[in-house]
């Protein structure tokens, strides 16, 4: 005899309702699953197969968890948005900026990529903080974990992971077209190349590092969630 309540409780991890309300929802869904499974068994289906068919009624437990929470909470939209998006986003932003400031003040020195002419560097120069880039996947993973735990959608999770590079992205989005338009009159022919280089160093590279960690964490969390469902069955 399967413990359907334990299975539902594990799968709906992060339901984020009041404890008494969560218990009620879990008990109700578990009773439904138990009856579905019993019906399959009455049809002569093996227990293993009956359990598999019963669980296949829910393709995405995270989505179900979100829908139930949405349906049962009246005006709680703001709280959910804070937990699923703003909290992970601001945390990744502050951690990423704090880490960068720490590395800038304590070292090691950044890697400077530029063409050289003798001992001097020729502009544009790219200043790359390698330890920062290597640590960013951890921050991305933390953002993904927090958003996932609060039952955030895939979009909320991805946005909160790359949130630290969004201010830079907006800056370059505004600065690049302006530079293209006024490049001649500014008389700085290197401006466009410098900005493009900046886009790579401050948006593309850290964004990719954050996403790498975040997506890996998300994959790990969803696999663990699936494994729990099978093990609990």
């Amino acid at each position: 005899m399967r413990n359907w309540e334990a299975i539902v409780e594990r799968q709906l991890n992060g339901l984020a309702l009041e404890p008494a309300e969560s218990t009620e929802v879990i008990a109700e869904l578990a009773a439904h699953l138990a009856e579905t499974c019993e019906e399959f068994r009455r049809q002569g289906i093996t227990e293993e197969e009956a359990a598999r068919r019963t669980l296949s009624q829910v393709e995405d437990w995270q989505k179900l968890s979100r829908l139930i929470r949405k349906a049962r909470t009246k005006e709680n939209v703001m709280t959910n948005r804070v937990k699923q998006f703003w909290l992970p986003s601001l945390l990744t932003l502050f951690l990423s900026m704090g880490l960068l400031m720490l590395i800038q003040s304590l070292g090691p020195n950044p890697w400077i990529a530029a063409r050289r002419s003798g001992w001097s560097l020729i502009a544009p120069v790219a200043v790359i903080y390698l330890p920062w880039l290597f640590l960013l996947p951890l921050i991305g993973a933390l953002g993904a974990y927090l958003s996932n735990r609060a039952g955030g959608s895939q979009r909320a999770m991805l946005t909160s992971i790359v949130f630290p590079v969004l201010p830079y992205f907006v800056f370059f989005l505004l600065a690049l077209p302006v530079t293209v338009l006024f490049n001649e009159s500014l008389g700085h022919n290197i401006m466009f190349i410098a900005l493009f280089l900046g886009l790579l160093v401050w948006v593309v590279a850290p964004g990719a590092a954050l996403l790498a960690g975040g997506v890996l964490a998300r994959t790990f969390l969803s696999r663990r969630s699936d494994a729990r469902g099978i093990a609990g069955g």
Partner: peptide, 15 residues
């Protein structure tokens, strides 16, 4: 109705 479709709707209707 699968479980995933039924209960969110029931809870919404109850609200």
């Amino acid at each position: 109705f699968t479980l995933a479709a039924l209960y969110p709707m029931l809870y919404r209707m109850e609200q």
